[in-house]
Amino acid sequence: MTLYHFLIQATFSYLGTFTFGLFINLPQKALNSSSLIGMAGWLLYWFIFKLGYGSILGNFMAALLVGILGLFCSIKKKMPTTMFSSGLVPLVPGASSYQALSAFINSETTTAISKTIHVAMVAGAIALGYVTAQMIADLIYKRKNV
């Protein structure tokens, strides 16, 4: 893991989130923040994965970070949190989904089922991480208002 690899991962995760934000027509004041959040989430996932903890835990922790950073940005910029959820885009298991579909097409049933289960677990980890961030925010908000 060199500085070169870190810069490549950071640059392309930022650009990927940025172009997705352009594609879905995010407001200009949310575009850079959302891209930075996506980059931070991807880098956390990448570090956890490189440390050997696996993609499920990495995606959960990265989605949790994206959710928490999105909440902070939504408060700071006075915008809905959904404007910053595009930070989850780098975490989407697109390559695994493609491999699962390819295995189904090539009649490699065992590989296809294995890849499909992995995709479902990664997607579940992303959803669970993001929902956990929302629940944490709700608990903090309720305590401040009580």
Rank of each mutant, 00 (worst) to 15 (best):
I37K: 02
G38E: 03
M39L: 05
A40T: 09
A40L: 07
A40W: 06
G41K: 05
G41D: 06
W42Y: 13
W42I: 00
L43H: 04
L43Y: 05
L44M: 12
F47Q: 12
I48M: 03
F49W: 06
L51H: 08
L51A: 13
Y53G: 06
S55A: 07
L57S: 12
G58A: 08
G58S: 07
G58K: 03
F60K: 00
F60G: 00
L64Q: 02
L64A: 08
L64F: 14
L64M: 08
L65T: 06
V66T: 11
V66Y: 11
V66I: 15
L69Y: 11
G70K: 05
G70M: 05
L71I: 14
F72M: 15
C73T: 15
C73K: 09
C73P: 11
S74Y: 00
I75D: 14
K77M: 15
K78V: 07
M79Q: 14
M79T: 07
M79I: 05
T82M: 11
T82I: 13
F84D: 03
S85Y: 02
S86H: 09
S86L: 13
G87N: 12
G87Q: 06
V89N: 04
V92M: 12
V92A: 14
P93C: 15
G94E: 09
S97P: 00
S97W: 04
Y98Q: 08
Y98H: 10
Q99I: 11
Q99S: 15
Q99H: 10
A100I: 07
A100W: 11
L101A: 10
S102A: 15
F104M: 11
F104L: 14
I105R: 03
E108Q: 15
E108Y: 07
T109K: 10
T110V: 13
S114E: 12
T116F: 06
I117D: 00
I117K: 02
H118E: 12
H118C: 03
H118W: 07
V119G: 04
V119W: 01
V122K: 01
A123R: 02
A123V: 14
G124L: 10
I126F: 03
I126T: 12
I126D: 12
A127Y: 02
G129Y: 00
Y130T: 08
Y130E: 01
V131D: 00
Q134N: 10
I136D: 04
A137I: 01
D138S: 08
L139N: 06
